[in-house]
Design a protein around this nucleic acid. Structure first.
Lengths: 131, 131
DNA sequence: CATATTCCTTACGTTAAGGTCAAGTAAAAA
DNA sequence: TTTTTACTTGACCTTAACGTAAGGAATATG
């Protein structure tokens, strides 16, 4: 079973739990989003509760459409890195607000795009019908 | 001036007119969207009225959010390739309709994403305020 | 202990739509 | 004619977020 840490998990198990691949987890570590986890004697990664929380947080932000690069910038500002992971600062609010605006903009763009397509469609239909 | 064709243009001029780069035009030819244009003695590409219309059409569809790959499929179905470029068939209508649905879906997704972000934001604000 | 499973690192592949040289010709202008 | 542009092909580069081996070591199971 487990020797020192009561609730540590290996990478495969963790990936399965979260519905992602091991590659994804290693990748997040690779680009500095996850910070080096503890390792077993042989080098096998071990993730504790905190690591898991952080990973879930990352996945949540990703779900919200925030890119990994943006998360890196986020991590620069207030340190997700240094255990103060749950000390959420106004900077996050700021970023979320920016994201809301971005989303609003995208919606607006898509709406006018939709109109254009519909118009174009109408014109084509007219041509077809006038033959 | 011009010897045989009255209104033929070279690639640089055409690119400038349409606000794109020469690379783009060559690329469209490369992937078969444009079909081989006529050439001068030395190999310089020459684009006639028809070529220009086709290119404009491609750019229009691109503006509408249709990918180059989709245009290729489009070209398979009814031949943009063989001068019947302006014989618009119902297949184009079909594709435009598909696109309208896609756009609608994207809008819906972004809307619920927006809600989620706002909710998340509210929760964070609550945490900050309760401190 | 042997085998099966999981894990490790390294590193190239993937997608879209071109961008960016580089080396070499052709055409247009002076 | 010389110089300056413009054009040619070929080939490697770019971004995001991983996918997918390859080859080897470690852990778990019978």
């Amino acid at each position: 079973m487990n020797s020192k840490n009561t609730k540590s998990v290996q990478i495969g198990e963790l990936a399965k739990r979260l519905g992602i691949t091991t590659r994804t987890i290693r990748y997040y570590e690779e680009i500095g989003l996850m910070g080096p986890p503890e390792r077993l004697g042989g080098g096998t990664r071990t993730f504790n509760k905190e690591d898991i929380l952080r990973l879930k947080f990352i996945l949540k932000l990703k779900e919200l459409g925030i890119s990994l690069k943006e998360m890196q910038e986020l991590a620069e500002h207030f340190d997700i890195h240094q255990q103060e992971f749950d000390t959420i600062t106004p900077k996050l609010i700021e970023i979320l607000d920016m994201h809301i605006s971005k989303v609003d903009e995208k919606i607006a763009n898509l709406s006018s795009l939709r109109n254009e397509i519909v118009e174009y469609r109408v014109r084509i239909m007219d041509i077809l019908n006038s033959k």
